[in-house]
Design a binder for these strands. Structure first.
Lengths: 226, 226
DNA sequence: AACCCAACTGACAGACCCTGTCAGTAGGCC
DNA sequence: GGCCTACTGACAGGGTCTGTCAGTTGGGTT
């Protein structure tokens, strides 16, 4: 058990991206130089990109190294959304970096989690400009994810209230406010709701299936100039 | 060295998020049950969120688990920027999740790297110079910024060509494609154009003023259910 | 309440891995 | 050639790890 801990500590030390002599590491770890050499072998065997050069010392090839860490489903969603935003706003270099990171993370994920996220980033439309936080957004996101019918109490711009049953399809960010696009069962047509004008949300529990004419794709087709 | 490897293997097995009995794990690892119990102690001591319940088995509390992985400086920057964007745009749940992830990552970072990133996210966000995946995106962006009338050659979904004079108001990212929303002088109404279907762009040079009924705000009002 | 299940804990001897010491090789730089 | 440092091999001793055995605990089922 001591050895396991020492290997972890060695990584921590090497993380600074600087050069380290085996003798220094031996002093710090309070073991012999020979043991350090053996530990380095173990690290290399474990796939850690540590390199040693004669007469120079040891250094990490990839300077940043993330230890094993646990992520919740929501944190994963945050990473996906963040990457989607970066892909949209930043320069090519950062775009590609964001994609690479996401690929690495996704590959490290077990199947069920990956499924639950499928298309999440894509369903978010965002133009980052102003901060907006609304209470019912998590509920809406969950409804989109799990294809759950949503009952909302809505206040239109003219002040009129209405209760609607919708199939939430996508969320959009318009710079000033978030909206939710969905198929409105009440009006039997697509509608866009400003999230800050949704007073109440309720999930009855029934799941809706994708019906031709009521999907996100069908909605997008409307935005084609005649 | 064998023990170190076995601990790593145990994590890999537990990653599936399912329940595992110590006896099964012992068989798979070809060690005794007692050793498995000791290994579990080590994992818990290392901060791995594995939980064991009497009469049930072992399971990972946080089903998503990232293995050690190397990140480049740029990828790290992309993560930071993404988290910053999420914090500014999404709901509280996602905001907090983004912050949590960032904290975890930062704690795993060596000092010099951390310094280099200081304040990175905010600066980038303050200057949202959108990058162009498509050639005419910079032109459109400039036209939006400077309120310049735009002449475009457009191909609709049905294949019909048209030349239009528009007042570009906003660009949107729909996950699959970029669109540009604008007031179409030709049709005398708002229209949404898919950027990848804009064949040609031309800026005549005349600036347009904000006219009531033709602004972005007016367009957004349309997405209000009656 | 008895019973099963499987996680835990403690103890202990033996096996095995790990470690330090010593000696020597190899590649780069002055 | 001399110095630096990474590397390798061998070997004995010590320490860690492991299996066996016995027993406890908590939750669920019958």
């Amino acid at each position: 058990m001591r050895r396991t801990d020492r290997l972890f500590d060695l990584i921590q030390v090497l993380r600074d991206g600087r050069l380290h002599k085996a003798s220094d590491l031996a002093d710090k770890m309070e073991v012999s130089v020979r043991t350090i050499y053996r530990d380095m072998d173990s690290l290399v065997a474990s796939g850690i990109p540590v390199e040693g050069e004669r007469g120079v010392g040891y250094i990490l090839r990839a300077p940043v190294f993330m230890p094993p860490m646990a992520l919740t489903q929501t944190e994963l969603e945050a990473l996906h959304l963040g990457a989607a935003l970066v892909r949209q706003t930043a320069d090519v270099e950062l775009q590609e970096a964001a994609t690479r990171v996401l690929t690495k993370i996704d590959q490290a994920m077990p199947e069920p989690m990956f499924r639950a996220l499928d298309g999440f980033g894509k369903e978010i439309f965002a133009a980052p400009e102003v901060a907006a936080s609304f209470q019912n957004m998590p509920v809406i996101r969950r409804a989109i994810r799990e294809q759950l019918t949503l009952l909302i109490d809505y206040t239109a711009l003219d002040g009129s209230h209405s209760r609607r049953c919708i199939r939430p399809l996508q969320m959009e960010y318009w710079g000033r406010a978030w909206t939710c696009t969905g198929w409105c069962e009440t009006r039997d047509d697509f509608r866009v709701f400003r999230v800050d004008r949704i007073n109440e949300t309720l999930i009855p529990g029934d799941r809706f299936a994708s019906e031709p004419g009521k999907t996100l794709m069908d909605y997008l087709k409307r935005f084609t100039p005649s």
